[in-house]
Amino acid sequence: MDNSSIVEVEELVKKFENTTAVDGVSFEVKRGETFGFLGPNGAGKTTTINMLCTLLKPTSGRASVNGYDVSARKNEVRESIGLVFQDPSLDDRLTALENLEFHTYIYHVPKDIRGRRISEVLNMVGLSNRADDMVNTYSGGMKRRLEIARGLLHYPKVLFLDEPTIGLDPQTRNYIWDYITDLKKREEITIFLTTHYMEEAEHCDRIAIIDDGKIITLDTPEELKNGVGGDVIRLKTEDDGKAYEILQGEYPGIEIIREPECLCFKKEKGEDFIPNFIRNFPVRINSIALRRPTLDDVFLNLTGREIRDEGADSLSGLRQMRDLGKRKK
């Protein structure tokens, strides 16, 4: 697999009437990687995806997918990508098979491979035995799986997944991820996804954390978490006072917090540190625990807020209310 970029974005900006949804975003996605956009609701994730998919015109900046400019070569971009939208986009009065057939026609999948490809993707998402059922008899998770299958039909180079597991229960969410992981093994494909679930971002090779229309950091999940300043280690010993003094002497520059029952400190690559530490520490250890920093710690560190803090939640609540209002109008 070569290491060139399949998505290139430079200083991309999207302004709506009085808000700037995407504010000068630049990044590259490498061929074959799983790249994630992590951020709270309203951070500009979907707007970015919509620009990359040619559904929205960028206000300024440049973006290309599979080597084609998203403004100048729309059709080539559209042929290169598969899409799973945040909101459902199936025709639920048709059967699953009919939805897929429709897709093969509008994406010009050659006649001789249509049938084979359809059964292939149906198999991949485990829906072969429900192919002839109307989509309106499907559960939310099945619909999502069908949409993923549909997005793959025309052998896209990049699969865009906008919040692929939103609104699904944790178990179904895990299923979806099993399918995505499986898919990565079977097809040579680049995946670009957005999410506001931290656990989900962990599946990505690299993550861009986006807030308020800007990318605030971009790296592998491991590196991002290492950047927080190490794993959190909690230590209980026979004599915490003595242990405290030894720790301070041996590891200057580490902040050790004395809690009533234990000692707490951050150490980079904690899993490498602990075995040696236990072997050599002179005070008898009763227990030692290591907690990995989460991506939420990363976000908290950089913005001072949690991803799913009150602000974001009440905002998304408002958005839902507004959407409902729109529907009623």
């Binding site: 998919c53 040619t54 559904l55 059709n75 080539e76 559209r78 042929e79 899409l83 939208f85 986009s89 199936l90 897709h103 509008i106 994406y107 010009h108 549909r150």
Partner: peptide
């Protein structure tokens, strides 16, 4: 959306 984002 499915139709509008296709190469048709």
């Amino acid at each position: 959306k499915e139709v509008l984002v296709s190469p048709v």
